[in-house]
């Protein structure tokens, strides 16, 4: 009974008008959460936490670098799950959502690479090194760009999405490579400082801004994903009845 309700609910959510309506309700709350968490996170990052005894103030860059890096990878996993669902069940809204993850993930990868470079210059003495972590992160950016390009290359959007979804699943192999690169190879990039299982090597006083900014970027990812998906759906369905009905009056 519960399974059936869940199944029906899941399929109903896949219906474009329902998805459009529900995402319009959720998105503003995610944006509000993002604004609140960012405000608190930035206040802690810039005003509350003390300078590091070795890195001085430069380590404040990590409060945006690390959440962006995590989100670039988490966003890829979200995209891969959506792509798998889209390929198995052929749900169009899921296809669209998977495709819309790519530009957001690419944006976080760009933030991660640029801020990492800006931190590396004063701390390592170089803007860039072809080390395993940095290179695999650059590859992630190229994979994101490849997915966006492939999706855009097809006139038939559904065909483009299906082909790009396969590339998404192939590209998953890069995520564990990024994660374990600092363990498998000798890298200039440091190993994991924050551990979910085991003791973190970061001082607890430096944790609040990292946590707030991590939550903020996750909420922002959700909000932009819904907004972009709604736009894509609207663009694809512009000649369909539900769009005409919804916007016939006020469009």
């Amino acid at each position: 009974m519960i399974w059936k309700t869940l199944k029906v609910g899941f399929h109903r959510l896949g219906s474009p008008p329902t998805f459009y309506r529900i995402s319009a309700l959720i998105s503003p709350w995610l944006w509000a959460g993002f604004a609140l968490c960012t405000a608190i996170g930035l206040y802690y990052a810039l005003y509350v936490v003390p300078p590091d005894y070795q890195q001085s103030d430069s380590y404040r860059i990590l409060f945006i670098h690390v959440p962006s890096a995590w989100q670039a990878m988490a966003g890829y996993l979200v995209m891969a799950i959506l792509a798998a669902i889209a390929l198995v069940w052929r749900i169009r809204t899921t296809e669209i959502m998977a495709m819309m993850c790519a530009p957001i993930g690419a944006a976080f990868t760009v933030i991660c690479l640029l801020t990492g470079s800006l931190w590396g210059r004063p701390m390592w003495g170089t803007w860039w090194a072809w080390d395993a972590r940095l290179t695999s992160m650059l590859v992630l950016l190229f994979i994101y760009l490849g997915i966006m390009g492939l999706y855009a290359a097809f006139e038939d959007r559904r065909k483009g999405a299906r082909v790009a979804c396969i590339l998404v699943l192939v590209g998953v192999v890069n995520i564990p490579i990024i994660h374990f690169s600092v363990e498998w190879w000798t890298t200039l990039h440091q190993g994991s400082t924050i551990r979910f299982f085991g003791e973190s090597t970061m001082h607890p006083s430096m944790m609040p801004p990292l946590v707030w900014m991590t939550v903020a970027v996750k909420l922002m990812f959700g909000a932009v994903l819904l907004d972009r998906s709604r736009n894509e759906l609207l663009e694809q369905d512009r000649r369909k009845g539900w769009v005409r009905q919804a916007f016939g009056g006020d469009a």
Binding site: P51, S56, D57, S58, R60, I61, I64, H65, S68, I111, L114, T115, L118, W119, R121, P122
Partner: peptide, 14 residues
Amino acid sequence: FEYGFYVWTSYAVF
């Protein structure tokens, strides 16, 4: 901040 250029440029990129 010390290293202000790098910190503020990073936040501007963000």
